[in-house]
């Protein structure tokens, strides 16, 4: 990693080169289904298609066939305190096509059958039951106005 800014492209030579620029790539899930040999990455904004290809080919030795990239607009939301509209940062997404034999499935990061998750679910269930019972107790004498729940047979 370098502390230098990645230089804007200028015509002419010699080009200003940065050794180990501040590039990163992250595999993300896409909301719309992709073919099995296409993987979606979120990448740093400065990267071009060529950079993305080089990154995967030279560092990870992956057989890249084609790269398509786009800039995805950030989400709009309301500012919590003052209520005006703000926007999150844009992100650059790259759809990388690998040879058709390659099959990629996004890993299941949070599998269902987790011990802690299971315990939490059980706890929630008993809590819900308790709440339900209390509600029943409160409404026991709802038709006899003014009487508390315990005043009954």
């Amino acid at each position: 990693m370098s502390s230098r800014w990645y230089p804007l492209y200028q015509r002419g030579n010699p080009q200003l080169r940065v050794f180990l620029p501040n590039f990163w790539m992250k595999i993300v899930k896409t909301p719309n289904q992709q073919p099995e040999n296409v993987v979606c990455f979120e990448v740093s904004h400065q990267m071009t298609k060529y950079d993305i290809r080089q990154y995967l080919e030279k560092i990870y030795k992956l057989p890249v066939v084609a790269v398509r990239d786009r800039i995805a607009m950030g989400r709009f939301k309301r500012e919590e305190r003052n209520g005006y509209i703000i926007k999150e940062e844009d992100s650059k997404l790259a759809y990388v096509t690998f040879p058709k034999e390659v099959k990629f499935t996004y890993p299941d990061l949070f599998p269902e059958e987790n011990e802690t998750k299971k315990n939490l679910k059980d706890d929630e269930k008993s809590l819900d039951q308790a709440k339900e019972r209390f509600r029943e107790f409160c409404n026991r004498n709802s038709k006899r106005r003014g009487l508390p729940g315990w005043y009954s047979i």
Binding site: N32, Q33, Q34, P35, A66, R68, Y95
Partner: peptide, 8 residues
């Protein structure tokens, strides 16, 4: 049958 836009 995925969205043809995903094929390019």
């Amino acid at each position: 049958s995925v969205d043809p836009l995903a094929h390019g």
